[in-house]
Design a protein around this nucleic acid. Structure first.
Length: 878
RNA sequence: GGGAGCUUAGCUCAGCUGGUUCAGAGCAUCUGCCUUACAAGCAGAGGGUCGACGGUUCGAAUCCGCCAGCUCCCA
């Protein structure tokens, strides 16, 4: 068969993915094997996979494929989540821009129809990308957080937690997104540092009777537009400047409301003017002060961020425009004392990053977290769930769990599970899974029949559905104790980004413990953030995130997987650069060419040429050694190191050394036994590589020789590596070292590659060289290789280890260059010897150090002295 | 303000339980090669007082303290 010059990924990739699917290799059903389960962290349906996903999916595929090849029943469940707020805002925008429809014109079912269409379209794009990347997911198990059974599960959990008293409804200070017009959880708010201003505003003081005292009290605020909601001025009780104002009032500018001056330790005397305006409706701290001092709450904002009627002035103006107008009005009245530059942190909506979140009092649904947090914290602290890399994230996890606040789960959105609470006209409610249940429950609870019950308009936070993911993808909530959940749960590993440790990981552990009384997964592997090569976050605004499909087209999926894995230790950010994909592509090519070489050989019996037994034995041992190492690295989740080890084994050991050692002469046959062994090595190498680079390895596996049906690499089971025979590895290392040193000498003496040399070895360990003689001769282009007991005049002499080598060349050599390199080595060795001697002369070292360490130093000394002697003798000859 | 992590070759990073298998890898650089698998390649080479200072130890890139710079999380 004619093999192309270079490896061409595209056709091989599509072919093999289809083949694997046709053979149902990714399909998993419970059987007698142990399960290895991964549930995909659902990418949301708002767009396409970015490089962060690519890293995530690649890591999961590596783990799953490795498990599938190691005797496990591997099951990787794909899916996506509905991303309530993100998707809804995209759909709303799309409707407005493409169809000119406002959400308010639509009924809930009409809107949901559009949302589902949108989900079909973008969910499909994501699945296509997952395929292109080679992910071995079980396509019969695709899950979506809004599937019917999933929807039911979420509702059931809500009702259950409500009945257990773990969900409650109440008015609390929450984070409000005025653009999406919905509540957010604390985790969905991102704080950014910005340059703001602190405005000093003076309020007139009046006495209890309401008479002006002629005095003013000056407060400092970042948010002058909220002063219409002020219901007190607060100062520190120890602040002498304001002590005399006890029992007095202040007049809120613009609206002339008389508010009390109150005293509380909360106020920092040093900050601003030491006087604080208190606006309980629009600041969490003010809200708490309000509760303590029984203050009135005046909510001056509408849900869209404009001023409400309660503000009296500038009603209907946007909050930021209103701020400017308030400042102008205050200045006009002479109440604005000064403006001061001020850095502060503002909360932005995670899903509407340009929108400043408004603290607001609102009636919402909450999950009580404290009781559920405790077992989830214990599970991680006692190691039941292991986090990788552990040291770094354990503290973060603990802190959040120990300080967890109640979780606001209601959203004023339509795209999501609608809250199963049912209200009568008076606002009394019951919580039930269905309308019928609600009617029955209502009758029981209130002793009367409800004429109409209206379901809560709001829907649930997406994370309130995705925390059930490891269970409900197996119908674990909707059909408890079914065969799948019993077999696959708890899952094996969760691979995800560290940014959602609270959103998801922590809450999944809580839900798993609550509903299965068992952890949802044994290990959590956090990947780092993918940044561009300048270290910047990848983002749409910067346009620095490469398009995955385009990358695959340019380099092939294997090369992209290689590129992203080669430099991404667990938990560390990685700077992604095309050149690492290039390295992956070159690696493909290297293996392709090795295949071409091997395919070119004609195996024969009794070829007459010496059989390179040493090379074969050495390669076998190297393979076993690295295989064992790779298994250990897998256990520790050090995947990029495992890939590096395999890469180097294939490129360096196999291609650069082994194949050269066994390569027959031009158009000469190769020994049939060696040929068979070599094919076997190649197969094992491809097998080791397969989890990382599935396509090229499967392709080469099939090109290497004819395969029986079902003999496919994707399911070929690993055989535990045999123990290594150390001496052969040592001899191999010696061979490499001698070859490299003499090649260097050839180079330095300008001996052309084609020119032959005669090599004479002066050693006391002749038997160590006998097995590698033919290799040395071949690799050094030596026409003659002999042993000698004395120096060879006129030869280039060099020292490797304790042995001396004489290289006789046909061309003139430059003794000065030789002398220089020998001298350089001599100086280094003498320095080294000195440091070893110093150690051995130190009595404390000899007494305290481990005997092995002392023994090692003695050996070093002896070796070093022998080497120095060899160098000195060589120098004398020059 | 609280916490965590990072700082090793020009760049990106490995270096687990302290001792030449400890100063490494890959890119990049330099030299020589179109050697019949591979120039997307082959054969070699150069390059770092392991952020600063102090301590523990016979011995520190490695353990401890402190400082500086960077990053992230939380308030």
């Amino acid at each position: 068969m004619e093999l192309s010059k270079n490896y061409i990924p595209a056709s091989a990739e599509d072919k093999w993915y289809q083949y694997w699917m046709d053979k149902q290799y990714f399909r998993s059903v419970p059987d007698e094997r142990p399960p290895f389960t991964i549930v995909i962290p659902p990418p949301n349906v708002t767009g396409v996979l970015h490089m962060g996903h690519t890293l995530n999916e690649t890591v999961q595929d590596i783990l799953v494929r490795h498990a599938r090849m190691s005797g496990f029943n591997a099951c990787w469940v794909p899916g996506s989540d509905h991303a309530s707020i993100a998707t809804e805002s995209k759909v709303v925008n799309m409707l407005k821009e493409e169809k000119g429809i406002e959400k308010s014109q639509l009924t809930r079912p009409e809107f949901l129809k559009y949302a589902y269409e949108w989900k079909e379209k973008y969910g499909g794009i994501i699945y296509h990308q997952i395929k292109k990347l080679g992910c071995s997911v079980d396509w019969d198990r695709v899950s979506f957080t809004m599937d019917d059974h999933y929807y039911q599960a979420v509702i059931r959990v809500f009702v259950d937690l409500y009945n257990k008293g773990l969900i409650y409804r109440g008015a609390r200070m929450i984070n409000w997104d005025p653009k999406a017009k919905t509540a957010l959880s604390d985790e969905e708010v991102e704080y950014k540092e910005i340059n703001g201003k602190l405005y000093h505003v003076k309020y007139a003081v009046v006495n209890a009777a309401g008479e002006a005292t002629g005095e003013f009290i000056t407060i400092a605020t970042q948010r002058p537009e909220t002063i219409m909601g002020d219901t007190a001025i607060c100062v520190n009780p120890d602040d002498e400047r304001y002590a005399h104002l006890k029992g007095h009032y202040a007049v809120v500018p613009l609206v002339n409301r008389k508010v009390p001056v109150i005293f509380d330790e909360y106020v920092d005397k040093e900050f601003g003017t030491g006087a604080l305006k208190v606006t309980p409706a629009h600041d969490i701290n003010d809200y708490n002060l309000g509760l303590k001092h029984n203050l009135e709450v005046v909510d001056t904002l509408n849900d869209d961020g404009t001023l409400s009627a309660a503000a009296i002035v500038f009603v209907g103006e946007d909050r930021f425009r209103a701020r400017k107008k308030v400042i102008a009005a205050l200045a006009e009245e002479g109440l604005l004392v000064k403006e001061q530059e001020y850095t502060t942190r503002l909360g932005y909506s995670q899903r509407n990053p340009d929108t400043v979140v408004e603290p607001r009092i609102s009636t919402q649904w909450f999950v009580k977290m404290a009781d559920m947090a405790q077992p989830a914290l214990d599970a991680v602290v006692n190691g039941e769930v292991k986090i990788h890399p552990g040291d770094r994230f354990l503290a973060t996890y603990k802190y959040w769990m120990e300080n967890v606040k109640d979780w606001c789960i209601s959203r004023q959105l339509w795209w999501g599970q609608q809250i199963p609470a049912w209200y009568d006209d008076a606002g009394q409610f019951v919580v039930a899974e269905t309308h019928d249940d609600a009617l029955k429950l209502y009758a029981e609870k209130f002793g009367k029949t409800a004429t109409t019950l209206r379901q809560d308009e709001d829907c649930l936070d997406t994370w309130f559905s995705s925390w059930l993911w490891p269970m409900e993808v197996f119908n674990g909530i909707s059909q408890p104790d079914n065969a799948d959940i019993n077999y696959y749960y708890p899952t094996s590993v969760l691979v995800t980004g560290q940014d959602i440790i609270f959103f998801w990981v922590a809450r999944m552990i809580m839900a798993g413990l609550e509903y299965k009384h068992e952890k949802p997964f044994s290990d959590v592997y956090f990947t780092g953030m993918v940044r561009d090569k300048l270290g910047r976050k990848m983002s749409k605004q910067l346009g620095n995130s490469p398009d995955l499909l385009e990358l695959i087209e340019r380099f092939g999926a294997d090369a992209v997987r290689f590129g992203i894995m080669i430099s991404s230790p667990a938990g560390n950010d990685l700077l992604f650069d095309d050149t690492s994909c290039e390295q992956g592509r070159n690696f493909n090519n290297k293996m392709w060419n090795a295949l071409k070489l091997v395919k070119m050989w004609k195996p024969g019996q009794n070829t007459g040429a010496p059989v390179p037994e040493f090379a074969v034995e050495w390669m076998e041992n190297r393979l076993n050694e690295v295989h064992a190492e790779v298994e250990k690295l897998f256990k520790d989740f050090r995947l990029s190191e495992a890939l590096k080890a395999i890469y180097s084994l294939i490129w360096d050991d196999f291609c650069s050394w082994y194949l050269e050692w066994i390569k027959p002469g031009f158009e000469q046959p190769i020994d049939a036994g060696v040929y068979e062994k070599t094919i076997g090595f190649f197969e094992r190498l491809l097998q080791l590589l397969h989890p990382f680079m599935p396509f090229v390895s499967e392709e080469l596996y099939h090109l290497l020789r004819e395969r029986q049906p079902g003999d496919d690499l994707v399911i070929r089971q690993f055989v535990a590596p045999a123990a290594t025979h150390q001496p052969i590895l040592v001899e191999g290392a010696l061979a490499k070292e001698v070859i490299t040193s003499i090649r260097d000498a050839r180079n330095k003496n300008q001996v052309k590659p084609k020119d032959t040399i005669a090599l004479h070895i002066e050693t006391r360990h002749q038997n160590a060289f006998q097995r590698i003689e033919s290799i040395l001769a071949k690799q050094l282009n030596a026409r003659e290789l002999t042993y000698t007991k004395e120096a060879i005049p006129g030869a280039v002499s060099l020292v490797v280890g304790k042995d001396k080598f004489y290289m006789v060349t046909d061309t003139e050599v430059d003794p000065a260059a030789q002398k220089e390199s020998l001298l350089k080595d001599l100086v280094y060795q003498q320095g080294f010897l000195k440091s070893v001697d110093a150690k051995l002369a130190n009595e404390k070292f000899v007494q305290n150090a481990k005997p092995e360490a002392v023994e090692a130093e003695r050996r070093k000394k002896a070796d070093c002295e022998a080497r120095i002697q060899a160098i000195e003798e060589s120098l004398k000859l020059l």
